[in-house]
């Protein structure tokens, strides 16, 4: 199963991943429209952290033993059978934020309209998550995980 590997050493902190994540999860998937046209652009599902010269972009790790899955009382958070990815079903989420509370990575956030949880979906449907595809320094890689 493919997962995003973070190579902290080579993250430049440019946040292009963030930009592309936002665009990918927007209505139009058009960068200009997303930023300049759509009334509210989606929240990024990738978190670029920066401390001194170290930066890295973190998104859902799709944990094998995912606390968010346990915590989700509606079953909105589920594991995709095919890819093993932890996904959030927008229809089912009621915004109780249990998932936010238990995710040790802090990579689930409230959606831009604050109604439901928003998290990395590995850009389902794309060959490669857009953060990985657009990382100019290959600090993110989409690789088969060890297991």
């Amino acid at each position: 199963m493919k997962r995003i590997r973070i190579d902290e050493k080579y993250c430049m902190g440019c946040r292009l991943c963030e930009v592309h994540c936002i665009v990918q999860h927007s209505k139009t998937k058009n960068i200009l429209k997303t930023y300049m046209g759509e009334c509210s652009k989606p929240a990024p599902r990738i978190f670029v952290e920066e401390k001194g010269y170290v930066t890295f972009a973190l998104q859902c790790r799709h944990c094998e033993d995912a606390p968010c899955l346990d915590a989700c009382m509606t079953g909105a958070m589920y594991r995709d059978k095919e890819t093993g990815a932890v996904l959030c079903s927008e229809d089912k989420c009621v915004g109780c934020w249990m998932c936010i509370m238990v995710c040790p990575f802090g990579v689930i956030s409230r959606s831009s309209d604050k109604k439901i949880a928003s998290k990395c979906d590995l850009c389902m449907g794309e060959d490669m998550p857009v953060c990985v595809k657009n990382c100019p320094n290959e600090a993110l890689k989409y690789e088969d995980s060890k297991d």
């Binding site: 080579y10 902190g13 010269y53 320094n137 290959e138 600090a139």
Partner: peptide
Amino acid sequence: QDPYLTKRLNPEI
């Protein structure tokens, strides 16, 4: 040698 800049060159690439 600025570590904020040097990491921009990923040797793998």
